[in-house]
């Protein structure tokens, strides 16, 4: 086990603490990275409230809800995968990590489908944007376009994080399969889990802000 401790650390516990603190600090930067977009959202929602409500009504609430449930479930599977390592249950760890990858992929597939529908409806902001039928006649299409700009910006950045997350989970899954992790050493699993949960937390806020303000 000492082979996992790098030369400049005194012991495994110091290394674990350092890695976990490092990840948390990274997540704090991620909060502010997404934070710029959340600020933009707060700003324009204040200016164009009716347009944002109109835009929200053009999103598919059922798919959004299913996706939220999928992500919450994946957080559950990955935290059990870490528990598997803590209890030296390698098969459980591998199976649960695989489940996490599947759930992550399902989320991305549903998101992809939602995007494709938006493309067909010309709801992607830019030159070809057109609002089509509206629920509220009074809203300015330009302002609904701003809603969709933020929708694609926020969910797009989130999706990029999901893709990275699925990749990282796949890597630790292979390493777990090769027997790298034991109850004595599972630092990479723990910090991968932290990242995954963070991406989940971001979605927990995105979902009501984008889908539920009707």
């Amino acid at each position: 086990m000492s082979s996992h401790v790098a030369h400049h650390f005194d012991d495994a516990s110091q290394q674990f603490d350092a890695a976990r603190l490092g990840m948390w600090i990274f997540l704090a930067t991620e909060v502010l990275f997404f934070g710029g977009l959340f600020t933009g959202y707060a700003y324009y929602r204040t200016l164009y409230t009716p347009a944002f409500i109109e835009g929200s009504r053009h999103l598919d609430l059922v798919l959004g809800t299913i996706n939220t449930a999928v992500l919450l479930l994946s957080s559950f599977t990955i935290v059990l995968a870490i528990r598997g390592a803590q209890t030296d249950n390698r098969r459980a760890t591998i199976a649960l990590l695989a489940a996490t990858i599947v759930l992550g992929t399902v989320f991305l597939a549903i998101k992809g489908y939602e995007y494709s529908v938006k493309f067909e409806e010309h709801h992607v902001p830019g030159a070809s944007f057109s609002l089509g039928e509206t629920h509220d006649e009074a809203v300015e299409p330009r302002h609904v376009e701003m809603f969709f700009a933020l929708y694609f910006g926020m969910t797009g950045l989130h999706a990029v994080h999901m893709i990275i997350g699925v990749g990282v989970v796949a890597v630790v899954c292979v390493l777990a399969w090769r027997g790298h992790y034991t109850s004595q050493y599972y630092t990479p699993l723990e910090i991968t889990g932290l990242y995954w949960h963070f991406v989940d937390v971001v979605w927990v806020f995105l979902f009501p802000l984008l889908y539920l303000i009707r």
């Binding site: 930067t29 991620e30 502010l32 934070g35 710029g36 830019g126 933020l150 694609f152 910006g153």
Partner: peptide
């Protein structure tokens, strides 16, 4: 602070390259 600069530059890119106004 730095991540906010990063996202701001991303938004400029969105506006400049994709024509999506922010």
């Amino acid at each position: 602070a730095t991540p906010v600069l990063a996202v701001t530059l991303l938004l400029i890119g969105m506006e400049r390259v994709l024509g999506v106004g922010v």
